[in-house]
Design a protein around this nucleic acid. Structure first.
Lengths: 348, 348
DNA sequence: ATGAAAGCGCTAACAA
DNA sequence: TTGTTAGCGCTTTCAT
């Protein structure tokens, strides 16, 4: 159209022309190839600067199918555990010039299919699946296309997948021992839906911890929550109907503990004087509520590093059976635990 | 399986071949063009299904420079306000088949330059800048490339930008009126750093609210926080050194209020009996703490809708002066407010 | 040490 | 209504 002024677009060739080299050379300079003569490289870099040239990785993605992007599927972004994780995860990716494609399913099973579709569409190099509550069918397309998958808290791996699991056993053992040492003998537990694998793992870890501490598991002191306030609240209200109430409660996560705390307050039960409470996750907000929540936490940084490592592992070992990494958890004692009081409505 | 080695890649042409049409027709079907004969369209759709074909928008991005992706820059992902916003924002984008590129700067000024670079690189169609604390220099590249920018809480627009601002005036006025009606006369305020525009806006809104309520602004009852726990905590500790303490405190956001609450508890000051407290933001956690936080909130859905609308507006009106949208805020009365008590250490 | 050129998958202008 | 084709920006082999 324009024969004259030639409104040229800003691409690698524009730079090449200005620098008096070929586009191949510019590409080499940008990607730090060692073969280019330093003098030439400098000239090119200069032009890149002058023109404010930003290379488009999209073209590279198109050509090689690799996007330098990892997808992450989050079950519930309003649970602060995930944002705190994402901050660390993003940091690692950015430092190594990779990108994160975040999708949330907000506990909506159907949304997972959508999420997976977006991952495919954007050609991610791997998917971190934090939504454990998924049906295999939804993620089949990822397997079909041999996209590396890293699961969380499944504790098992298939071909082409890695798993990063939190070592609930550590944290719950320390939690139970802490309570036992304070004098507690009857400890309640608020878990998650039983259909979810990780809920069963957490319950089991709690039971083992009781056993380790020489205490007996009392099934009627266990309730199922939903990893959110509401579940913790409802569970406490139900627990308090028991003839023989526990003197302490351990929960599947911190949000559940917050719900439990609210319900206890509402019933005029003082934490920790009349009821001790321990969460799991170690979210920052736990340090802001009153009383500050005693909880078993993990290092989000360690967790994020493991996830990235797992994703990278699959890049080079795509079809082999993957890694199974474990993240240790440890108790953080704050203010929501204390020795039991006889005044609580314990029968006998 | 297929005769011959032929391992053909799965692209629009594979589909075309199988359906006995041209790639252009397949493209038209995929994009819902009306001109294709229904019979042909059906045949194509069938093949797409059979082959599990997923079109690559990357190629389209390469061709047209538009990525159907909006970038979002978040100042601090561990403030639940942002995750709660993102859930709504993502929902809207996904429904209209667009993508979100999330970057966080975690209050790191330097990270903004990095964020902006990533936006450029990924060819976003627009940037939502929630990090108000930015120096113009960092976002210049966006202006240079005429990438639509939507700012938040700046309350002013330049060429090629829109702004979505929260109407702090509503919420603070209701907050102050609520306190005044309870009998409070001396209300403290914990704001944010003064260098940040939105901090000054919030303080001003609070002052106007006092004025509206017929109360006098007392500068010595104002402290500066940092929009996080720590700031709220420190501010309360400083406020309590005043000869004449306030009987109620209003904060710049909920996280600050949490910090304030913690500090008050630590000092044995009961909320709300001895001190009333009102936050701002309406984050979900506010309903989980004890006492449940009275706060002025916005509808995150409305907020997210406005942001998307603003981004879309700039798509068609790229260089014109943009929209300036306002999001109303309203008080949510919960448990952290009550009439003042003479027992607090009020002098006189 | 550098250049020429093919091709990744898609879309839209144009042709039939 | 459908087909043909050029070209988006980049990288990488092969040639020089």
């Amino acid at each position: 159209m324009t024969p004259g002024p030639e409104r040229s677009k800003l691409n690698i060739r524009t730079v090449a022309r200005q620098a008096g080299v070929s586009s191949a050379t510019v590409s080499r300079v940008i990607n730090g190839s060692a073969v280019v003569k330093e003098e030439t490289a400098q000239r090119v870099r200069r032009i890149v600067q002058d023109l404010n040239f930003v290379p488009s990785p999209i073209a590279a993605t198109l050509k090689y199918g690799r996007s330098r992007t990892y997808g992450v599927v989050i079950p519930d972004l309003t649970n602060p555990f995930y944002p705190e994780f994402l901050v660390e995860f993003e940091k690692i990716l950015v430092e190594s010039h990779r990108e994160m494609l975040l999708t949330t399913i907000q506990s909506h099973e159907a949304a997972l299919i959508n999420s997976v579709g977006r991952m495919l569409t954007r050609q991610v190099d791997g998917v971190l699946l934090m939504a454990s509550e998924y049906e295999t069918k939804a993620i089949e397309p990822l397997f079909d296309r041999k996209i590396p998958i890293v699961t969380v808290d499944r504790r098992k791996v298939e071909k082409g997948t890695c798993d990063v699991s939190i070592e609930f056993e550590d944290g719950y053992r320390e939690s139970v021992m802490h309570l036992r040492n304070l004098g507690h003998r009857h400890i309640g537990f608020i878990g998650g839906h039983n259909e979810i694998g990780t809920s069963r793992v957490r319950l089991k870890a709690f039971q083992n911890a009781l056993n380790f501490a020489g205490l007996t598991y009392e099934p009627n002191l266990t309730r199922l929550g939903d990893y959110r306030f509401a579940g913790g609240e409802a569970a406490v209200n139900s627990l308090m109907l028991e003839k023989k109430c526990p003197t302490a409660i351990i929960t599947a996560n911190d949000l559940t503990a917050f719900g439990a705390m609210r319900a206890l307050h509402a019933r005029g039960i003082n934490v920790p004087a009349q009821m001790s409470l321990i969460g799991f996750d170690g979210i920052q907000l736990g340090d802001a509520v009153h009383p500050r929540l005693t909880t078993a936490g993990i290092s989000q940084k360690t967790f994020a590093e493991a996830c990235v490592r797992a994703l990278e592992h699959l890049k080079t070992n795509a079809s082999r059976r993957g890694l199974l990494l474990r993240i240790p958890s440890a108790l953080v004692v704050r203010e929501s635990t204390a020795p039991p009081r006889r005044t609580a409505r314990l029968s006998s």
